[in-house]
């Protein structure tokens, strides 16, 4: 029997915080075409709306002038910075991986920053969200590997350094993305548990400082998640060493 209660998304009583913690996926809000919609999906939609609105309004008045808006400067700073990071870690044309990397980075960053809104549970604190992103990376690995080096080059990765390593290589293929999903989930969950425990024993002051720390770890986790996705997807390099002109093609710094 499924209970529906819209007020539960933003109003989780403190004494039930530990209960709501484990059953975040089991808080059903309403029904859509016969499918029960839980709080994770709704909070994901909220994050998606925010991202879409930001990108819509940010790209309205793009200028290549000397005087650009502060908003554009902020976004350019972010994209340029991540572009440089991706270029350094992948040793390849960063434009190839920026679509996946920046999307993951922005989604995780915005949902982690949403923790400062009281009673809003970030979707990244739910195992189903992080595993969905892990599965995306899991299928992106063969896609980029085959695109870089062909099917032969991709399969060759599994028998390196020796064919005896085949089972280990297959296992590590699964374990790496699994660990990625679990790492993000564990970090966000530990922040929430910590905040819940501190709120019960010392309300008002201490949880605020923990939330500030949570913002720091949240941004670091977003960076790590995106960078690890790039590290794994760029694991199989193109066969001929990419020359410097190819490397600089996607460089936004010129």
């Amino acid at each position: 029997m499924i209970q529906y209660d819209v007020s539960k998304l933003f109003d989780i009583p403190l004494k039930d915080s530990t209960l709501a913690l484990q059953q975040y996926d089991k808080i059903y809000l309403f029904e859509l075409f016969g499918l029960p919609i839980n709080a994770t999906i709704v909070s994901t939609w909220i994050v998606m709306v925010i991202l879409v609105l930001i990108s819509y309004f940010a790209t309205r008045n793009l200028k290549a002038d000397v005087q650009v808006s502060k908003f554009q400067t902020l976004l350019e700073l972010m994209v340029t910075w991540l572009n440089g990071e991706v270029k350094e870690t992948s040793n390849d044309n960063p434009a190839k991986y920026m679509g996946l990397g920046l999307a993951l980075f922005l989604f995780v960053l915005v949902s982690n920053f949403m923790t400062i809104i009281p009673w809003f549970r970030p979707p990244t604190a739910s195992l189903s969200t992080t595993f969905a992103m892990g599965i995306i990376v899991f299928f992106a690995i063969p896609y980029f590997a085959i695109r870089n080096a062909g099917i032969k080059g991709y399969l060759k990765k599994f028998i390196q350094p020796t064919p005896f390593m085949l089972p280990m290589n297959i296992f590590s293929e699964f374990a790496s993305t699994f660990a990625m999903a679990l790492r993000l989930f564990g970090n966000m969950l530990s922040g929430i548990v910590f905040a819940a425990v501190l709120t019960t024993c010392l309300p008002f002051l201490l949880p605020i400082s923990m939330q500030v720390l949570g913002l720091l770890t949240g941004s670091i986790q977003a960076y790590i998640f995106a960078l690890l996705a790039v590290v794994y997807t760029s694991g199989v390099a193109p066969e001929q060493a990419s020359d410097l002109t190819d490397l600089n093609k996607g460089d936004l710094n010129g």
Partner: peptide, 28 residues
């Protein structure tokens, strides 16, 4: 710095595995 961030996150994973198991034992 960027490599160290990634490596630190990977090392931290072992503690997070433990955390997940502990949460399972305590709450589910």
């Amino acid at each position: 710095r960027s490599t160290a961030f990634i490596l630190l996150a990977m090392i931290e994973t072992t503690a997070l595995y433990t955390l997940v198991v502990v949460m399972l034992v305590l709450y589910a």
